[in-house]
Amino acid sequence: DFVRTPEGYFRPNTTLEDGALVLRLDPVSESTVRDALATEFDRAPEYVQTAIREGTVTVNEDDVYEESRFYVVRDGTYYLVEPTANEYVVTGWGWRDPPHIAVEAIRLGGWIAGVALLVRAGEWSERGRREA
């Protein structure tokens, strides 16, 4: 909607003059651009309002329509609200996630069973050779 140049902000404007389309860039003030881009505080999502009131807010991904930045104006002050950190939380295991000691016990049990199986297999093959 706007063009930013070192000379300032401009808004594209087209007019039809004698059958020709004339494209102009009309200068606009920065405050015009700010007002056009900024969302009114009352119309911002609830978590964005909380972030402005308290400085930060943490929300579940499911509660966010789109992970993006917000440019918000509240009582003449402009705020930028942007995601700064994502925390991955393992969900779905819950109580089924075995405690560390249980995992160690299962691992040890596997070793013992494996060694016992090797010894037993050796005995069986020895017996087979003797009977042959």
């Binding site: 902000y9 964005v48 991904e61 440019y71 995601p83 994502n86 925390e87």
Partner: peptide, 14 residues
Amino acid sequence: ERITYEATEADGVP
């Protein structure tokens, strides 16, 4: 996944 948003006062147009 949890997302943290931070609000800062913006001096210019972002």
